[in-house]
Structure formats: C-alpha cells, structure tokens
Amino acid sequence: MITLNHASRWYGQVIGLNDVTAVIPTGVTALLGQNGAGKSTLMRLITGQLKPTTGEVLVRGEAPFGNPEIYRYIGYCPEIDNFYEYMTGRQFVRHMGRLAGYGRTEANRRADLAIDRVGMSDRCDRPIKGYSKGMRQRIKLAQAMLHDPEIILLDEPLNGLDPVGRREFMDLLGQLGHEGKAIVVSSHILFEVEQMTRSILLLHRGRLLASGDLRAIRDLIDKYPHRITIETEQTREVAARLAALPYIVSLEFGRDGRSLELKTREPDRFYDEIPHLVLDQGLSIDGFGSPDNNLESVFHYLVEN
C-alpha cells in the first residue's frame, strides 16, 4: 500500500528522515519514536505535503507529492486540533466532505455516518471550541475517514483520550484495519500502541531502526539477556532452583524480599520450566512478568544497543 524506498528528507542542514526503506501493508502499523525521530516527517511524506529530498515514497504505486488525486485514498488526522473552533463538529466534517469533492447531500450523509462511527453523534452540534481533547480527536478521525480512504494516517491519536475513549478508539482502528485499510498510527505512548498492533516501524533520529512484527523484532534482540521478575515468598528456595538452570545468566533479590529478578538468554525455555517449578517441586510463585515484553524495552534495546 505504501512504499518508502531510500526516502530521505532534509530541512536545510537538519535531517528529518534518513534513508528509510519500508513497506507499510494493510492493517494497523505503529510508527514509533521519540520526539524528533521523524514520525511526522514520514507522515507528511506519505500525505504528499513534503517531497523526499532523495529516494521515493509511493502510495498505491504513485508519488503523492503534488498529486492531489492520490489524496482521495488518504485520510489524515494531524496532531494539531485547534482549527475552526467556531464551527460545530458536524459543520467541520461536512466542510471537509465538500473539500473531498462530494456534493452537499453526499457530504452531509458521509459526515453523519463518520460522526456516528466515532461516537460523536450526540455532541457534534456544539462548537469545536467547547470540545475536550478526546472529542477533538474523534472529530479529526471522522474527517479523516469520511471519504472511506484506503490509508488513514493518525498522528498521536490517543493523546487526551480517557481510558474508555482509548479503548473505543483502539477498537475502531482495529475494525478499520480489518476492513483492509492501512492504518498508520504514530505514537510515543508505547504501551497503548502495543495494545493496538504488533506491526511497528521504529524510528530514531530520522533512521528506521526496526520494522516488522514486534515478536520478530524481539527475536533480533534476544542476544541480550531477557529480564524476568518473579514474585514469591520463597525467594531463596526459588533462587536455588533457578541457579541450577544452565540458561539463567544472573539472579538478583528484590529489596522487598518478595521478588527475584533473573536474566536469561532463552526466555521461552524458562517459561516452559515454570510449571515444573510449581507443580513438581512444590514452590509457591505468586506471579511473574517481564519488563522486556513491552515496546518500551524493545525501543530501548534497539536504541541503546
């Protein structure tokens, strides 16, 4: 759907995106990176608002820059949301429908459908200036999806949403992804992205650090020990058993006396061993988890190592 082929974008002496090659398929893809990583630059290259300095960006096989026809297939939901405060949400979405080339009746119909889909039907006749952040996000999404685009780009869409709103928003994005659309979501709130998709593009200082399935990326970093935390009242007994396992690299007692943190080079084998520890050897384990199983840690691994 979207292809980047050695795409770079310079702003004078400042590099925004550096030699990025990637293919973004249908479904939800997360664009991850810290501030200044190049997420917005990448989105603007895809939406045709910037021209790559070198390389190429293709959307449906065509370069989007200066090609408004391709915008018919793109819905863009920028991070900013303080425009057209004097309009009501419905007026704004309808106006965007007219901009997309629809006649009045069709624009109104599509706007009403899109507003309904983002759950704003009961509040869309109030001026945008009175909207909460979450309501603005929804209205922005409504304008991005009203023309049924194949590609929807969302810049930090979860900012300002309450937990229920986030859940609904994520569910909606998931639905759109299942409908065959390519959804690109930029974010630096990694745990939220993790709940949306496992397909990521990880940017750092303009470079594409990693792309693909989160688990595949995780495999790449498996040469680094994987941390696992175990909660138990029998810390010493559990530690003694674990120390005998050949793939355990280190063990450390928690300060609270009720936890252990270990490092292993073979997390899958370790997870397989846990039932035996409990059932066969009668050890009591209250819980376990890994701080390395989220995107935050993946990001840090890739950036720091």
């Binding site: 200066g66 863009y76 900013i80 303080n82 057209y84």
Partner: peptide, 21 residues
C-alpha cells in the same frame, strides 16, 4: 494567518485540494 497559526493547512492540503485551490 489563522490557518498558519493552527496548521490547518495540514488538513486542507491532505484533501484533494491543491495549493492553488
């Protein structure tokens, strides 16, 4: 000017709308 301030052009120009439009 207000579109410049709010970056509303991001939305306008992501529609099938050219700078000349």
């Amino acid at each position: 000017a207000n579109d410049n301030r709010t970056n509303a052009l991001l939305v306008y120009l992501s529609k099938p709308c050219t700078k000349m439009d």
